[in-house]
Design a protein around this nucleic acid. Structure first.
Ligand SMILES: [Zn+2]
Ligand SMILES: [Zn+2]
Ligand SMILES: [Zn+2]
Ligand SMILES: [Zn+2]
Lengths: 165, 165
DNA sequence: CTAAAAATGTTACAATATAACATTATAGAC
DNA sequence: GTCTATAATGTTATATTGTAACATTTTTAG
């Protein structure tokens, strides 16, 4: 995902976007010899539905309508699996989860989160990462996993003048 | 706070460090016409004690031993006040709170958090901020409040070989 | 002193997350 | 195919983090 397409344009074919994300997930799990079960696949699908972070209990509410014994462990275990394999990220500032568009290479995650509509885009800008590493190194700190969550306004909400009225 | 002193050295006079933080807080509240009550001052003192993030219920446990009717709202209200005035920051990835060494100028917060000992340092590196703004601008995103929390190893734990054995 | 405002006390509950153990489904050995 | 080990899910209970709502006390200002 390049910078200029961090936020999908309005003509974005979302059905195809979601399907290809699920296909990539399926392939990745196949290569790693782990199982993308129907439950895990469904949870992944749900976090991909809106390109916006979803809370565990929002996911649970949907699952409850679809499965007999859905309970918190149901969704948290699926999310743990998806997190372990880089298929979703956890957004710490929202206690929520969002699909990762590029699960193959391990990375922390740089997120642009719209405060108006919730739309979230993932960056992976090496310049940001480098700036952080430079600064941390000067402090004598060994960087593990940088977490970057930037609240603000997405292009659509910004242009619509949202977020302050 | 300059980069090279992000983590205090071992000879760090912590009693003095904490006292001066409280004095700065007192002065700031005076200038703003708001009250740094004994409760608020005590909570601020507690988050400063260890230079490491403290959970609300950890603070509450201490307060309970000192005051009659300490309950969750007691500590959350004090923290809300301190957050509003920039005297503490919330560390989202830990659901915890840490004192701000520079409450005068508003800022998001760039944190280096040791996964071994919990020691946390606050950076405010304009280059990181600039890298983020550049990248977000290219995505058409209007940056509000960037949040940066970097997990890793502080200089002492790194040198002691902690964090992986 | 008195009234308004601010701060704190108190009770109850909401939202998020995990522990522990039982059951079911899957994969591989035979 | 059957059996067995493992992985996944079901189920119940509970831990952790955070708020709502209203009562009481303290502080400020007239
Ligand atoms: Zn990602
Ligand atoms: Zn938006
Ligand atoms: Zn700060
Ligand atoms: Zn450390």
């Amino acid at each position: 995902m390049t910078l200029s397409t961090a936020f999908m344009d309005t003509g974005h074919d979302h059905a195809n976007c979601m399907e290809s994300a699920l296909d990539r997930a399926s392939a990745l799990c196949g290569e790693r010899g782990v199982r993308l079960t129907p439950l895990r696949r469904r949870v992944l699908e749900l976090v991909w539905v809106g390109h916006k972070p979803l809370g565990a209990y929002e996911i649970l509410d949907t699952l409850k309508a679809e499965r007999r014994g859905a309970a918190p462990p149901t969704v948290y275990r699926a999310l743990d699996f998806l997190l372990q394999h880089g298929l979703v990220h956890r957004i710490e500032s929202l206690n929520s989860f969002v699909g990762c568009p590029d699960p193959l290479k391990p990375h922390g995650g740089q997120f642009l989160i719209c405060r108006s509509c919730g739309l979230t885009a993932e960056l992976n800008d090496h310049r940001i990462d480098q700036a952080i590493r430079n600064s941390a190194n000067q402090a004598g700190f060994a960087v593990g996993r940088p977490m970057i969550e930037i609240e603000g306004l997405c292009p659509y909400c910004r242009d619509a003048g949202e977020g302050s009225p």
